[in-house]
Every structure is written in structure tokens, then in C-alpha cells.
């Protein structure tokens, strides 16, 4: 379990992390989503005690990172692809790490086998491919057999096979009851992996919701209509209490109704339709809408006391700016 309480990190000219409060729970994969530069990596460095917070605190298993007696046995982390010196062999890299935390040497060979690097264990990591480097980093994270694991953009630059491997690994770790916290800037990747979603934008919390709820709320389905007689269409729809919203491209969008019903109404009213198509906004779009709002929210930050997550999630669902 990782707990953030009003965690804040300010640099001279910008606030990278802005009073973040949320908890990452065991037994599930928690996706940490935000556009590049949203503060994901900074948050992770704060969790690991690498950066000092300007305000607030973060607890791992109820303690601040510096107070963990053998930190690698509490939380394992992968921050960047290769935090290894290329001149050292994969095995030796894990060996010094193990010794720093009194982890038995045999564990090194176990994790090397677990990530599939046993055959190159005695090769210097400088010659590793990106994928192998990533596996070495994951081996380092697993070394202390920790109940909490944290990965920063683990699939960046990996081939499809590597991506699948990491996805399954994370699910497997969560299924064992561990806390798995993984960041990404790709909603599509998170949709396949995460059970729970924490979204940040400009260092602020935008959403902290179960994945399923996020999908229900944001995967908006609607019917797109084009007509040369908009007023007639609106009147026809209005007779059944259906409202249509004008999209920027000139088409009309109707939520909560099906194409057949609309066709019947239009036909009865004698309205000519040029297009009548069911649409489904992607999660990627929902995510981009949400983080785009974060920028606006940031610009007029006058809504003190309003929980940004609730506020913005709601506004995201009602925004009609999405075009296809």
C-alpha cells in the first residue's frame, strides 16, 4: 500500500506535483495515467525518497521511504530502462543490489531466471537491447520479493512480445496480492492492464476511479446525424424529449437514443438525413478530454475547495467537444 497525502513538489518556476492525495491498494494493478510532463515520474521519485517533497508526505507500508529498514524488500521499482552501468554483468548488477539489502545471493539467480535473462547473466549489460535492459530493471525490482511494485512507463520502446510479457507479469503480481503501480501516457495500454486508474494532469489529481467505472463514464456512445434541415430535425426530436447537440464540424450528436428511433422520427417529420451513424468515443479521447480540461482548470484555479477529481470527471462526461 502506498499513501500520498497532500504531496506537493514545486520547482522554482513550476509546480510539478500539486497536493496529490490518493492511496494505491494491494491486489490490483493501479494505472497512473497522465500526459507527458504531468508529474508522473516526479511523483514516483517522491515515493522513493529520491526527491524531497515541498509539502505533504508519502508513506509506503505506513512508513516514509527513508524509514524502511530494507527498502528493496518493501517496494521494488523500475524508474528508467537501464539504471545499470554497462560495464557490469547483469548478475553482478543484481549482486551489489542484493548485498546492499541483505538479500541472499541465490535470489539473484532466481530473478534472472524469472525475467528470462539466465543465459546472458554473465554478459555485460552495456550490450543489452532495450527489452533486455527493461527485463534487467524488472529483475532488480523483483529482487527483494517486495509486496509493493512500481514501474515507470515499463512498455516504452518495447516490441509487442515484450509488452505482452510485462502486461501479464503485472497482472500476475497483482493476483498474488501485491500492490502494483504502473505509469503510462497511453490510455489504450492502461485499459488492457489496470484494474484501477489514477489520472493526473499538470500535477493535479483528475480521477481516482476503478477502471470499469472510468469506461462506463467516459466511453460515451452517441448517434451522429447530418441534415440540411437542422430546425426540422430538432423539432422532430424535441417531440419525444430528445435533445441534439451541435458538434463543431456541423453534425448533430444525440446521446441515449438509437439510430432506428431517430430514423423513425425523422421520417415521420419528413426530415432529410445525410448521415445517421452510431458512434463510440474511445477511452483515449476521454482521457485527452479530461487532461485538456485540466489545463483549463489550471488556468483559472479559483475553484478552491472543489475536489478536482469529481469536478473534472463530471465535466469531461458532459463536454461535447469531441469530434471524430
Amino acid at each position: 500500500m502506498i499513501e500520498l497525502r497532500e504531496l506537493t513538489k514545486r520547482y522554482e518556476d513550476k509546480t510539478a506535483v500539486d497536493s496529490l492525495s490518493f492511496a494505491i491498494r494491494p491486489g490490483q494493478v493501479t494505472g497512473f495515467l497522465g500526459p507527458n510532463g504531468a508529474g508522473k515520474s516526479t511523483t514516483m521519485r517522491l515515493i522513493l525518497g529520491l526527491d524531497r517533497p515541498t509539502g505533504g508526505q508519502v508513506l509506503v507500508d505506513g512508513r516514509s521511504y527513508a524509514q524502511l529498514p530494507a527498502p528493496l524488500t518493501h517496494i521494488g521499482s523500475l524508474l528508467e530502462a537501464s539504471a545499470a552501468q554497462g560495464g557490469r554483468t547483469a548478475r553482478d548488477h543484481l549482486l551489489w543490489l542484493a548485498r546492499s539489502n541483505r538479500i541472499p545471493d541465490r535470489r539473484v539467480d532466481q530473478v534472472l531466471a524469472a525475467v528470462g535473462l539466465q543465459d546472458v547473466a554473465r554478459k555485460r549489460s552495456g550490450g543489452f537491447s532495450l527489452g533486455m535492459g527493461q527485463r534487467l530493471g524488472i529483475a532488480a525490482a523483483l529482487l527483494g520479493d517486495p509486496p509493493v511494485l512500481m514501474f515507470d512507463e515499463p512498455v516504452n520502446g518495447l516490441d509487442p512480445e515484450g509488452i505482452l510479457w510485462i502486461r501479464n507479469l503485472m497482472k500476475g503480481l497483482a493476483a498474488e496480492g501485491r500492490t502494483v503501480f504502473v505509469s503510462s501516457h497511453l490510455m489504450s495500454e492502461m485499459a488492457l492492464t489496470a484494474d484501477h486508474l489514477v489520472v493526473i494532469g499538470r500535477g493535479r489529481l483528475l480521477a481516482d476511479v476503478p477502471m470499469e467505472e472510468f469506461i462506463d463514464r467516459n466511453a460515451r456512445s452517441y448517434v451522429r446525424i447530418r441534415t440540411p434541415q437542422p430546425q426540422a430535425l430538432l423539432d422532430a426530436l424535441d417531440s419525444r424529449g430528445i435533445t441534439a447537440v451541435r458538434a463543431p464540424d456541423g453534425s448533430w450528436e444525440v446521446e441515449g437514443s438509437d439510430p432506428a428511433a431517430i430514423a423513425a422520427l425523422a421520417g415521420a417529420g419528413g426530415v432529410v438525413l445525410e448521415e445517421l451513424s452510431p458512434q463510440r468515443a474511445s477511452l483515449e479521447e476521454a482521457f485527452m478530454r479530461m487532461t485538456a480540461d485540466a489545463v483549463e482548470y489550471h488556468a483559472d484555479a479559483t475553484l478552491n475547495g472543489v475536489r478536482p477529481a469529481a469536478d473534472l470527471t463530471e465535466s469531461a462526461t458532459t463536454t461535447t467537444g469531441a469530434t471524430s
Binding site: 522513493l48 528493496l72 528508467e80 539504471a83 552501468q85
Partner: peptide, 12 residues
């Protein structure tokens, strides 16, 4: 190499 971060997570 960036290994300093790993070192400091191991020995905070």
C-alpha cells in the same frame, strides 16, 4: 548511467 537513483533507493 543513472544508477545513482537505484543506489539511493537501495540505501536511502
Amino acid at each position: 548511467s543513472g544508477m545513482i537513483r537505484l543506489s539511493l533507493t537501495a540505501v536511502p
